[in-house]
Design a protein around this nucleic acid. Sequence first.
DNA 1: GATGAATGAGCCTTCATTCAT
DNA 2: GATGAATGAAGGCTCATTCAT
Lengths: 190, 190, 190, 190
Amino acid sequence: MRVKDEIKQEALFEATVKLVNEIGFAASSVSKIAGQAKVSPATLYVYHKNKEELLVSTYVRIKQLMGRAVLENFDGSRPIRDILKQVWSNIFSFVSEHPAYFQYVEQFSNSPYSELVNTEEVEAYFEPVIQIILTGIEQKIIKDVNFDILAAFIFFPVMALANPRHCKNFEMNRENIGTAFNLAWDAIRR
Amino acid sequence: MRVKDEIKQEALFEATVKLVNEIGFAASSVSKIAGQAKVSPATLYVYHKNKEELLVSTYVRIKQLMGRAVLENFDGSRPIRDILKQVWSNIFSFVSEHPAYFQYVEQFSNSPYSELVNTEEVEAYFEPVIQIILTGIEQKIIKDVNFDILAAFIFFPVMALANPRHCKNFEMNRENIGTAFNLAWDAIRR
Amino acid sequence: MRVKDEIKQEALFEATVKLVNEIGFAASSVSKIAGQAKVSPATLYVYHKNKEELLVSTYVRIKQLMGRAVLENFDGSRPIRDILKQVWSNIFSFVSEHPAYFQYVEQFSNSPYSELVNTEEVEAYFEPVIQIILTGIEQKIIKDVNFDILAAFIFFPVMALANPRHCKNFEMNRENIGTAFNLAWDAIRR
Amino acid sequence: MRVKDEIKQEALFEATVKLVNEIGFAASSVSKIAGQAKVSPATLYVYHKNKEELLVSTYVRIKQLMGRAVLENFDGSRPIRDILKQVWSNIFSFVSEHPAYFQYVEQFSNSPYSELVNTEEVEAYFEPVIQIILTGIEQKIIKDVNFDILAAFIFFPVMALANPRHCKNFEMNRENIGTAFNLAWDAIRR
DNA sequence: GATGAATGAGCCTTCATTCAT
DNA sequence: GATGAATGAAGGCTCATTCAT
């Protein structure tokens, strides 16, 4: 018997990201996605239970990639500020290299599809960053406020700046990222 | 006669928000929206050119409402910090009172539909706030950095905190909002 | 607004019977049926909830027609033998005039679709015949045995003889029907 | 090796009967049948040319089994009445032991698939019974009427009584079968 | 022989929209 | 203005069958 084809799997992933970004979930039909990936619509169902599962698994996979990217060169022994700056830099790199992945995640996480993902699984990918923030609080380096509030200043501004749908004319470059990080740090530091 | 019309108009608006929030753009068909609004699908076309225009106009209308809400009690003569704090408070109030409107806007603005809106028209609703920030920069009260960066710290954290899709367990109350605002202010102030 | 079209309803009914007889339930797709009836597949759904309901309602409607036909010239005051002979004659007439209807019913009632019909509703169409048999038992004209057994000799042989799938070379004519009725009567009479 | 084959063959036969009875020809896909038989869809094609041939051969096989069962303890030297009573008894036994086989045959023979079977081959399985009836006519024990008419009273009532789709609440037991046979005999005897 | 992968064709149904009243 | 009827196109998905191993 034939064996499952890694190349097709990959093509479906890329096709999904591309089409959903260009025309949205509503217009991204299974047959269009299959067409873009150059496989039969029926073949898509060999790799995915249904459309929903295709979209969700695509999201989870990107989140996993993001998690890995964000944690690159993560060194818990360095000062917290440096660690977080590294994280920002990593996010910047990821978004620069994979703007489509990032855009997909943004659209997905604001749609009702987001309710279908196992939140814990996804959050686990970012666990070390969460830990470092908690450590910062304990060490009285970071303000002792609700964790979600801190996260709202550490993660969301970068996301917003990186998202051309929100900051149409903002050019995301190393310099700007450095500047922006300073604001983030001022926000959360004691 | 005129009264009756507005009731239908209103019903369609509410139905659109409700359905899109619950099942997303993809699944929100014209029939379902009309059904939810208790009018015939044909009637919907009396009020809207097509589905796209319905979705976009719903978005613009909410943005207008948000603009008005945000500017409530806006007093340009007060200190900048106080003005911005008022803005945050207003955003908090709006989101608390109209969580569905807010959710619709979030989903919409992260979808390809967002490309169909006249950005300038929407931004105009928030013009006074933009002006106050620019003034703050001139007066050296606010950091002199790219405007988008400032906006990313003034607007997005509240949005994120208010969005249950992002902060599932965060309880948005006056106290938390006050705390969060302090972070925002620390981020942007000189 | 437009009003529902009796002609379309009728065309769908006839198309369903014709196609199902010719190619069976399995091959009778909604679009083939719609095509045969010269309406759009979508139009079929204006008149029927789904394919299943189309098939079931077609069956029930034929059963209703059969019920009426079978009871034609029904005169409870005549001798039981004459009444039953009339019934046989009526069945013969119906089957002769509407062989397609009859064939549809036979196929349907031997398929799992039969589980979807409200048996009581259908049986009610034949109530007077059932009553006459019960009366015959009371009057000691008909054998006092389980009702289903009697029915198996009164109804099924005619059905079998009338069904070309069972009696391929049997010519159903008035004479043969008369002969066959004699056997039925001999079977059930005391 | 040969043994293994027959097990798969057998599994496919049983799976076909089971599924077709439960969900009908329309819904019984090759995949589902293969799944039920716990073999690959491709394997099914090793044993059967296509779906049609699978269904037809399943029918023919059951008919063969029925033929054998019906002729059990057939003794042409006994009185005709006794022979036919034995036949009824055998039918009863077969249906009791293999209700699923029986149901399959009923559904199949009322569907357009029935046109694909070699009628003569199937009828041959029942040849001795046919002969005995013809003999009965010659000996003036049985009414001298069209053979199909006689058959309609000898075979169909038992089939109807045995078929729960027709006689939902009829309990088929030895006593009832005896009673019913008396009616059949009264119908055909001179 | 046996199988899971692969697929074009076709399934049932709903879509966005227009028609006729 | 308001509406249920009407529809071609397209939706997601499964089909019977063949391929490649």
